[in-house]
């Protein structure tokens, strides 16, 4: 379970997160909605310790990660998958090496076992004949799939995805959204996805929160949000 309590973060005089409290249950798929620039990425980065809050705590399975030194965080992050907006694949490694990288770093698996595991994940993300390709030779959607494969290769039980549909056409957006939902449910991951893509968020979310001016403006299932009388919520989801 992930518990965020009274989380605040400013950059200079700009308050980005203002006293956010939130709990995410085990196995739940939560979508963070918000217009761009509202602090969705900043919030996700706090959940994995890439940013430290000014105030508040982030507990992952009852461990407050905001006070851990980087060395401890590196260990905890091995159990968390993080999908960056643009994938952030190593461009000096091909697809196979990218996906195998966490296995080579953190396990003692031999090459045969690694190859087998990578093939299995490639099948899961439905990509074929790309193992020897480099990220520069892949389309945006393929990059995100490969990055997703790299994020889950260590059998993470927690998955964070930062705007998985941004920059993709409607069909690819739907595919990657469904894939995230599918993988999340199949592996039983606690999943947090940030997005400003209403349609696909409604498709996949167990629960959604809407962020506005650093606060949670609304929270609930898609039906709760659709039934909301709040002017801003109605305008955002129209």
């Amino acid at each position: 379970m992930i518990r965020i309590t009274h989380l605040s973060k400013s950059f200079g005089s700009q308050m980005v997160l203002d006293d956010i409290s939130l709990e995410i249950q085990e196995g739940e798929l939560l979508v963070i909605l918000g217009e761009s620039g509202t602090g969705k990425s900043v919030l996700l980065k706090h959940l994995i310790g890439l940013l430290r809050p000014d105030q508040g705590r982030v507990e992952i399975n009852a461990t407050d990660i905001t006070v851990l030194p980087e060395k401890e965080l590196l260990k905890i992050r091995q159990k968390i998958g993080y999908l960056f907006q643009e994938g952030a694949l190593y461009d000096f490694m091909n697809v196979f090496e990218n996906i195998a990288f966490p296995l080579r770093e953190h396990t003692t698996m031999d090459e045969a076992a690694i190859a087998q595991k990578v093939r299995g994940v490639l099948k899961l993300i439905d990509l074929r004949d790309v193992e020897r390709k480099y990220p520069a030779e892949l389309s945006g959607g393929m990059k995100k799939r490969v990055a997703l494969a790299r994020a889950i290769i260590l059998d993470s039980k927690i998955l964070f995805c930062d705007e998985p549909t941004s920059g993709l056409d409607p069909i690819r957006s739907r595919d990657i959204s469904d894939l995230i939902r599918d993988i999340s449910k199949r592996l039983g991951c606690t999943t947090v996805v940030s997005s400003h893509d209403i349609q696909n968020s409604f498709r996949i979310a167990d629960r959604l929160i809407l962020i506005r001016e650093g606060k949670i403006a609304a929270s609930g299932t898609q039906f709760d949000l659709k039934a909301s009388n709040d002017f801003f919520v109605r305008e955002f989801i129209q």
Binding site: I48, L50, E70, L73, L74, K75, I76, R77, Q78, I80, Y82, F84, Q85, E86, A88, L89, Y90, D91, F101, P102, E105, H106, R150
Partner: peptide
């Protein structure tokens, strides 16, 4: 620099590698 602006350095940290 290219790795930094493409988030590859941050990604390294999320993968548990220094």
């Amino acid at each position: 620099g290219a790795m930094s602006v493409n988030d590859q350095i941050l990604a390294t940290r999320t993968l548990g590698v220094d």
